[in-house]
Design a protein around this nucleic acid. Structure first.
Lengths: 230, 230
DNA sequence: GGAACGCTTCGGCCGGGCCCGAACTGTCCC
DNA sequence: GGGACAGTTCGGGCCCGGCCGAAGCGTTCC
């Protein structure tokens, strides 16, 4: 095992505004096509193509081919984690427009963090799970109780899949707006997938992280876990 | 609260080899003078001076004056955390020398991670604390038990200071060589300070993170917490 | 006071890397 | 097959930012 790593290789990739914007779009957890990422980065397709090869070479993203499209996604949750950690010490970008202020506000309420939920709602959710003894907090993350397994399965969340997978089951991830932990790992991804799949939340814009809670979402959160949302 | 942060500002600072080397040296947790950091970065004093102003402006480091010296340190544990997270997804630097291989091996065994201990020893220590019920694992970190408080105070660790401070008391921090948590936060810092102060570990080189365990250190770890070291 | 020392500021040099448009490859649809 | 579309490759222009040495400022020591 080697400890002497080259920080500059990855940092250089993130340091370029167009690439950073692309990575930010991919932090939504979605797979996005090269053209969408070019738009996200504010550059021409040819320029974007060069950036995407660099991100691939650097191991930050992965690609799948589909016809004449190429879809990119973050390579791993480690990448998402590093981007979030960097975000925690980055200066805020000055707010230039009303539109931006609105998105900003929406982001603090609910967003995706790679493949799981983040924001006020995600923290409230994990708090409810813990206080209702569905999850117990452990050093490296959380443990699902027997009650929790049946309650989540009851709600329709796929619990068996994550349990069978080799991926870390229920990690904690520091929410960088709330500065408190929310649920990540395979279980966090399953919860997010279910919440989006059932239409509890919808994306405000494709390729963007911000989510809007639906009326159905409010109802379900209140009914199932007694969470009231503003 | 704003969520729209400028990742490029911080990433740009880390992306430059000389600055990255300086930050790496500061990850040892020590305060280092401008001249030492110039040497760490492999640049002339004048160049280093420019880099250090940039790191200050970017909020990554802080400075204290002392006569004709200026001592720099990382600005916060958040910075250390971001650097570690970035390290987790960075490519290994090819090992070029025997000397480097030795330092590398030493690093995996024991090193400082900002202001607390990391490596095999740090993970073993936290495991022992938990299995001996001195610490219990919680979602966002650890909780010190009554037994733990007296046992650590007994060993000479300053427990009261951290408890009184406003800083997070006992966080968990992912050890990037062991991929398991070790003890951070104010208590982690106190443990590290005590271990170095008592001569249980010594630095292999000033301004470097690697530690060497002393005979006294081995004896104490075995006697107090039944930890045997290779 | 003078010399040594730590650090910063300034000017000039230089290279890496981002950007775009144009041309090319491969896929899909009619 | 032809045209539209997604993406890549290549060449040329440009600018940002790192590097050093020399000079300047403040501190320390004799």
């Amino acid at each position: 095992m080697t400890t002497d790593v080259d920080l500059t290789a990855v940092a250089r990739l993130i340091a370029e505004p167009a690439r950073a914007a692309m990575l930010d779009a991919l932090l939504s957890g979605q797979s996005l096509a090269a053209g969408e990422l070019a738009r996200a980065g504010g550059v021409q397709a040819s320029t974007a193509s060069g950036h995407l090869s660099q991100l691939l070479d650097g191991g930050l993203i992965s690609v799948t081919h589909s016809g004449r499209h190429r879809y990119f996604r973050l390579a791993s949750s480690d990448v998402a984690h590093a981007l979030e950690a960097l975000g925690a010490i980055s200066p805020p970008r000055p707010i230039r427009s009303l539109r931006q202020a609105r998105t900003d506000e929406a982001m603090t309420f609910a967003r995706t963090c790679y493949d799981h939920l983040a924001g006020v709602v995600a923290v409230a959710l994990v708090d409810a799970f813990v206080s209702q003894s569905l999850l117990t907090a452990g050093g490296d993350g959380f443990t699902l109780t027997a009650d929790g397994a049946s309650a989540l399965a009851d709600a329709g969340v796929d619990v068996a899949g994550p349990q069978a997978s080799r991926r870390a089951f229920a990690r904690s991830c520091l929410d960088f707006t709330e500065r408190r932990p929310h649920l990540a790992g395979a279980l966090g991804a399953a919860v997010c997938e279910h919440a989006l799949g059932e239409g509890w939340f919808v994306r405000r814009a494709p390729g963007h992280r911000a989510l809007r809670i639906t009326d159905e979402g409010r109802r379900q959160l209140e009914k199932r876990w007694n969470i009231t949302t503003p």
